[in-house]
Design a protein around this nucleic acid. Structure first.
Lengths: 171, 171
DNA sequence: ATATTATACATAGGTACCTATGCAATGGCT
DNA sequence: AGCCATTGCATAGGTACCTATGTATAATAT
């Protein structure tokens, strides 16, 4: 009986004896809801992917190199929309785990061309399956129109965020 | 001219010479959009809060203890919806920075009652101002109805996530 | 009263991001 | 050819999460 309780204190706030009034304030705005969703997604993805020896941050790499192609670290970072050091760290872990290989770029001595190993390519279908299932679970009870609406709103939000960051840099 | 470029490679994908077809695939589903939004929010919040000597993860603590009250670490974690060790780490940093104080709980020898220091309480109004501004910027161009819709969709998504996690634990 | 279970916290280790900064190869410009 | 800004990557250090596990106190059941 206590087993269900042991796992995560997060999913069961409303059954507590603590006043819940604050919660509405804390999660009445989009930002914390997005943050919470992101953390939930990460946890779920981690749980789904771990059995296959992969993790959430590696997914863009798997996706971008899925057809056996090669790419520069810079391009991987840019297409995955993360900063270069973040991608460097992810690639370091993937190399450690034998998922990627680096070949020196003949046209540029600074960079190397990253590609998935056979081991990684073999995992790809399983990962895609896990993601597909996860996606279905995530939007369970949503109509296609609602999903499209959500994506649209999020894209607009992201545009605002990009703009905001850019603006503040220009002083 | 290059100054605008230096800051962040993330906000300027579409002006590149790299094929963009993949990007649509990578960001056509809610999950990556949420992840991206969350990272954007974090970056923005960090930038807004740093001048005041605070950071994003501390906001729930500031909020929950804003009236000078005290609370257990456990309750802080539960109301902020993060795991206990995460809250412990946040509190450790806040203590390091002189933002919180711990008083031993007379009714329970295991826990201590956390409260904001005067220094932290003094910051609170500024933080609230920064957040208010940030929130406005975030949802710029959104109608109130759209914001409400977004929050509603996100809440449903979060429920699905909670349920998914709970389900997988029950085997 | 004592033994067991549950709870509150601490600690260890890991992922995924970020910014700031240094270094080395490139590619113009003169 | 030689200088120099740019670019690709590496490294250092930090925040914010997570899971797994240990430890002491508290609550409960015998």
């Amino acid at each position: 009986m206590a087993d269900v309780k042991r796992d995560s204190a997060i999913a069961e706030v409303d059954k507590q004896d603590v006043p819940v009034a604050d919660e509405w304030e804390l999660f009445s705005t989009p930002a914390p809801l997005i943050n919470m969703a992101s953390r939930g997604l990460m946890r779920l993805a981690e749980r789904r992917l771990k059995p296959f020896g992969a993790s959430a941050g590696q997914l863009p790499v798997f996706y971008l190199l899925r057809d056996g192609g090669a790419m520069t670290q810079r391009d991987l970072a840019r297409l995955a929309r993360i900063e270069q050091p973040s991608m460097a760290q992810t690639l370091a872990r993937m190399e450690r785990d034998g998922l990627i290989r680096r070949a020196s770029d003949p046209r540029d001595g600074r960079s190397s061309l990253i590609s998935l190993t056979k081991k990684a390519l073999a995992k790809a279908p399983a990962l895609r399956g896990a993601l597909h299932a996860g996606r279905a679970e995530l939007v369970e009870g949503f109509s296609e129109a609602e999903i499209a609406m959500l994506c649209d709103l999020l894209r607009r939000l992201n545009r605002n965020l990009d703009r905001g960051v850019a603006k503040e840099i220009a002083e």
